[in-house]
Simulated assay, not measured.
Amino acid sequence: MSRIAITAAEAACALGDTLDSSLATWTAGRSGLTHCDGLLAGRIADRSLLKGRRYGAASNLAVQVARKAVAKAGWSEEELRKCWLFAASSRGNAGELLGSHAWRRPSRRFSASNTLHSEIAAAVSIELGIHGPWQMISNGCSAGLDALGLGWMAMKAGMTQRVLVVAVDLPLYPELLRDFEDTRLLSKNGMNDPLSPATSGFHPGEAGVAITLEAGGAGPAMLQYGANSDAYDSLVIPEDGAGLAELLAGFDKPNLVCPHATGTPNHAVAEMNALHRAYESVPPLLLLKPFTGHTLGASGLLDVALMAEALRRGGLPGNLAGLTCPEGLSLNVPASPQRVLKIASGMGGHNAAVMLGGE
Rank of each mutant, 00 (worst) to 15 (best):
S59A: 15
A9K: 07
L148H: 03
E175Y: 01
P326E: 09
R30Y: 02
L97K: 13
G144E: 05
Y225C: 11
V209F: 01
S118G: 14
T262H: 01
S48N: 09
R339W: 00
A305D: 01
A157W: 12
S90V: 04
F180L: 12
A88G: 11
E77Y: 09
L145H: 03
S196F: 10
V354D: 00
A28C: 04
G74F: 06
L61R: 04
W103L: 07
K72P: 01
E77M: 06
N332H: 14
T18K: 00
W103S: 11
V163T: 13
F86L: 15
S345A: 10
R108M: 08
S107V: 10
S330H: 07
A9M: 06
E96N: 14
R277G: 05
L50Y: 04
I4F: 05
R162W: 02
R109F: 10
H276V: 15
T199Y: 01
A227W: 04
T292R: 02
A73E: 04
E119I: 14
A87N: 06
L39I: 14
E96K: 01
V209P: 04
M355Q: 14
L320E: 11
A310G: 10
V257L: 08
G263D: 10
R81I: 02
N189E: 06
A198L: 09
L306N: 06
S113W: 05
L288C: 09
L288F: 11
A102S: 13
S196P: 08
T212C: 15
T295E: 07
H117V: 13
P106R: 10
S59C: 08
K289M: 03
L223F: 02
P171H: 06
F291P: 00
L185P: 00
S125Y: 05
L285Q: 10
K68P: 03
A28M: 05
R105S: 14
A87S: 15
L177R: 13
H350Q: 08
E246V: 07
D193G: 10
W84V: 14
T7E: 00
G348P: 03
T199I: 00
G32W: 09
W26V: 06
G32I: 09
G314V: 15
K68R: 11
M155K: 10
S330V: 14
E119W: 05
A198Y: 09
R162T: 15
A268H: 08
A215E: 15
H350R: 12
I237F: 00
V340E: 03
G42R: 02
L195W: 15
C258Y: 02
A261L: 03
R104Y: 07
F110G: 11
M153P: 00
A122M: 06
R339D: 04
L49T: 10
G32Y: 11
L275Q: 05
H294Y: 15
Q161Y: 00
H35A: 12
I120T: 08
L256W: 07
A123M: 06
P326S: 08
S90P: 07
V209K: 01
Y232E: 03
N273V: 11
L296E: 13
E79I: 06
A122W: 08
L316I: 10
M153D: 07
L80M: 10
A9P: 08
A102W: 04
S345E: 01
